[in-house]
Amino acid sequence: MTINRLTKNITLRHLNAFVAVAQEGSFTRAAHRLCQTQSSITGLIQQLETALGTTLLSRTSRRVSLTSIGQEFLPRVIRLLADFDNAVGNVLRFSEQKEGQVKVAAALSAINGLIAPAARSYSQKYPNVRLNICDDSAEKIQNLVAKGEVDFGLTSRWADVYGLECEPLVEDQFGILYRLEDPSIQLNSDHSISLAQLKGQRFVGVTGETGIMAVLSARADLPLEASTPFYEASSTAAQSSMIENGLGIALLPALIAHRVRTPKLGFALLNDVQMLRSLCLITHQDHPLSPAAAGLASEIRQYLKKASLPQGCRTL
């Protein structure tokens, strides 16, 4: 009989019955322990020994003991059953979000404004699920999702990539981040501003692999100095610092602007050009979300339903 065929004839019921009889030294006590009849336990042991082609238990009128082969077999079976119970338990805990890990890559504005508040309530519900959240550019976030290195991403769409699915969650308008002491910035009565009013201004941009620059470079109706900024920063934090020190102004989405604003900086929405950015939950169609990752994504959606977003932002 081949090993594959042999294992099909042996079930967990056979192995549990063998362990119970070996440990109890009695078919009667083993039956009581497993809540079965003595005859069913006897039958299971006979089936197991027939399948293995050997005797595992020595039976006398007074006691039941292990044969030499049974003594060798018992600790292996105990380990196998323990490993099986642990494996099943781990899967159940994972499916119930009692354990696990979620990896997310997102734009920093999405982490601060959406993910972190949602993660706080999620972690209270599932304290044993570890969260690994990193910020990166839109291009790199999409690549991480495409490679399966993170569970999902949350950023603006960078480019169409086969297999990636984008679920828009939030939309925010572009405006101008500027230094409050800059006398050249004159806002309208509704605290908005037009691009025409910014003629001659120097713009501070961020690196080209961000979702912000993807939006700006795609707009043919923008002044050249806005779509190709004179200054460039590696991050929006560095960008705001440059603006605060008088190096220029920046076109930014509202959610980012409200995150990087300082007491020395102001933000005004554009009133003559409609520029919008969508933050999307990015997943891969070939990589289904784990229960824990799906739970965090759901928590983010629930948070957005009740969140108080800055002016210029709205949920989708």
Rank of each mutant, 00 (worst) to 15 (best):
R301Y: 07
S61T: 11
T155L: 06
L251K: 02
S217P: 02
E244F: 11
D85F: 03
D190L: 12
L224C: 04
F267R: 02
A257F: 03
V19F: 05
G43V: 08
Q311L: 10
P223N: 04
T155N: 05
I300K: 01
Q101P: 04
K306G: 15
L52C: 06
A82W: 15
L251G: 03
V104N: 06
A116R: 07
Q201S: 14
F203S: 01
H191V: 07
L180F: 09
F84D: 14
Q201T: 13
S234Q: 11
T55W: 08
A31V: 00
I212W: 02
E49C: 09
L265Y: 05
N112C: 15
E139G: 06
A307G: 08
A110E: 05
G153P: 06
K147Y: 11
L12W: 12
L265W: 02
F203E: 00
L198W: 00
D172I: 02
H14E: 08
S61P: 07
S68H: 13
A307D: 07
F230E: 14
I243H: 00
R33D: 02
Q311K: 11
E181K: 14
L247Q: 03
P127F: 06
R314A: 11
I133T: 06
A87H: 08
S192K: 12
N188M: 06
S189P: 06
V64M: 15
K306L: 10
Y162K: 13
L131I: 12
H284G: 15
I176P: 03
I212D: 00
L304Q: 12
S61I: 10
A297V: 09
T315Q: 10
F84Q: 08
P253D: 03
I69H: 13
